[in-house]
C-alpha cells in the first residue's frame, strides 16, 4: 500500500570488534523489486542481509521493514521477522522434522495456525517448489537442492513481504544449483520482493532488477543489470567484472 520501500537501510554502520564491516550503507528495496548484491568475499554482503532481519545488530543508522524500524531498541523483532523470509547458505532445516513439519512449524507456533491447516498449506508450498512427493522425508534423506527448496518453502509459509537469499546456492553441487535458481526465478516472476546475495552472475543478470556492488563494506555502484554488466560506471566495478572472466 505505502509508497515507502519495503527494506530501507539508512547510513548503516556495523562493526565486528574493531573491523568496520558496513560503512554508512544506504540501500532501498522497492516493492516487487529483485535486488541482487554482488561483490568479492568479505565485502559485507551477507552481513548486510543478516542485518535486515536483525540476526546482526548494527551500531549506527537505521533499518526499516515496510516503514517499521527493526534496528531500534523498541522494535518488535519477532513480529517484523515474520515479514522477512530468510534462506541460508547452509539450509538450516530442522533435522528432527519432516519436510512438511519444517514448513508448517512457523505458521503453527508463531501465528497459531491450526495444525491441519498449516500442514495442508505446507504440502501446497512443497508442491510449488517441486517437492510434492517428498513431504514425509526428513532433511537427511533429501539432496542439497531439495533441502534448499524446502527451506524456501519454509520461509514462504510465513507469507513474508520480502525474501532474503544469502548465497543459497554456494553450498550446492553444481548440478543442483539450477533447480534452486529456478524456484527463485519463479518467485521473482510472481512479484516477490527479493534481496539476494549471490555469486551466480547469470542469475543476477537474468532475474535481477537492480545490481548492487559491494566492496569493503560500501555500496560502490548500483544500476540495472544490462548497464552494470556491459559498462560499469566505476573503476571498482570494472575490476570486479574483469575478475569474473
Amino acid at each position: 500500500m505505502s509508497t515507502r520501500p519495503l527494506v530501507e537501510y539508512e547510513s548503516v554502520d556495523k562493526y565486528f570488534g574493531e573491523t568496520h564491516v558496513l560503512k554508512e550503507v544506504d540501500l532501498a528495496v522497492e516493492e516487487q523489486e529483485v535486488v541482487v548484491v554482488v561483490g568479492p568475499s568479505g565485502s559485507g554482503k551477507s552481513t548486510l542481509l543478516r542485518c535486515a532481519n536483525r540476526l546482526e545488530e548494527i551500531q549506527g543508522g537505521e533499518i526499516r521493514i515496510a516503514g517499521d524500524l527493526i534496528s531500534g531498541p523498541d522494535a518488535n523483532v519477532n513480529r517484523l521477522r515474520q515479514q522477512v523470509g530468510m534462506v541460508f547458505q547452509s539450509f538450516n532445516l530442522f533435522p528432527h522434522m519432516t519436510a512438511t513439519e519444517n514448513v508448517a512449524v512457523g505458521p503453527r507456533k508463531v501465528k497459531g495456525v491450526p495444525e491441519s491447516e498449516a500442514t495442508k498449506r505446507a504440502d501446497d508450498l512443497l508442491g510449488r517448489v517441486g517437492l510434492g512427493d517428498q513431504t514425509a522425508s526428513y532433511p537427511a534423506e533429501l539432496s542439497g537442492g531439495q533441502q534448499q527448496r524446502v527451506a524456501i518453502a519454509r520461509a514462504l509459509a510465513m507469507d513474508p513481504k520480502v525474501m532474503l537469499f544469502d548465497e543459497v546456492t554456494s553450498a550446492l553441487d553444481p548440478e543442483l544449483v539450477g533447480e534452486v535458481l529456478g524456484v527463485m526465478k519463479d518467485l521473482a516472476t510472481e512479484g516477490m520482493t527479493m534481496l539476494t546475495v549471490t555469486h551466480e552472475m547469470g542469475f543476477a543478470r537474468e532475474v535481477g532488477d537492480r545490481i548492487v556492488l559491494m566492496s569493503d563494506g560500501e555500496v560502490v555502484e548500483q544500476g540495472a543489470p544490462e548497464s552494470f554488466f556491459e559498462s560499469p560506471e566505476t573503476e571498482r566495478g570494472e575490476r570486479f567484472l574483469e575478475r569474473l572472466l
Binding site: N78, R79, F88, N92, V105, G106, K109, M158
Partner: peptide, 21 residues
C-alpha cells in the same frame, strides 16, 4: 549448530519457542 537457532528466530519465533521447538 547456531544456524538452527537463527533459522527458528528468522521465522519469528521467540527465544523460548526456538529452544522448545
Amino acid at each position: 549448530p547456531d544456524g538452527q537457532m537463527e533459522a527458528a528466530r528468522s521465522l519469528g519465533m521467540s527465544y523460548a519457542q526456538a529452544m522448545r521447538e
